[in-house]
């Protein structure tokens, strides 16, 4: 929903949390979110560089955030937005730890291709 339509709806007395006529329907958001999630999953499975794999994982998390926010807005419930903020905070912690691990492995091998991280097998 664009800001103009939103402010018009608010002025008309509608609940700003509920969708007004002409807004993008929920299903579109969900389809977009599912597609982003699948792109992320495929990226994790196909890519060989851990940084790119990690970016794909972030894409998955953000696809989930999109779902949460779309549901939250559709339902007029703050729980979705709140959950999305939790996800962002946790993702930030994961980035800090993950990049630290990757830097440490790059220092010792000068190479971070996941196919070559294979000392252990079986």
């Amino acid at each position: 929903m664009n800001p103009v339509a939103e402010s018009a709806a608010v002025a008309a007395g509608a609940n700003p949390l509920l969708p007004v006529h002409g807004a993008v329907p929920l299903s579109w958001y969900l389809i977009l979110s599912a597609m982003l999630f699948m792109i992320g999953v495929v990226g994790v499975l196909v890519k060989r560089n851990p940084i790119v794999i990690f970016m794909s994982i972030e894409l998955m998390l953000n696809a989930v955030n999109l779902s949460f926010i779309a549901f939250g807005r559709y339902l007029g419930n703050v729980g979705g937005q709140m959950f999305a903020i939790f996800v962002m905070a946790v993702a930030a912690a994961e980035v800090a730890v993950g990049l630290g691990i990757l830097i440490s492995i790059f220092r010792s091998r000068e190479n971070i291709n996941v196919d070559e991280i294979n000392v252990m097998k079986g």
Binding site: V44, F54, I101, V114, V119
Partner: peptide, 14 residues
């Protein structure tokens, strides 16, 4: 140990 951390981290966050 490094290798175990990378594998656990990538698959865990996946």
């Amino acid at each position: 140990s490094e290798e175990s951390a990378v594998k656990y981290f990538l698959l865990g966050s996946f």
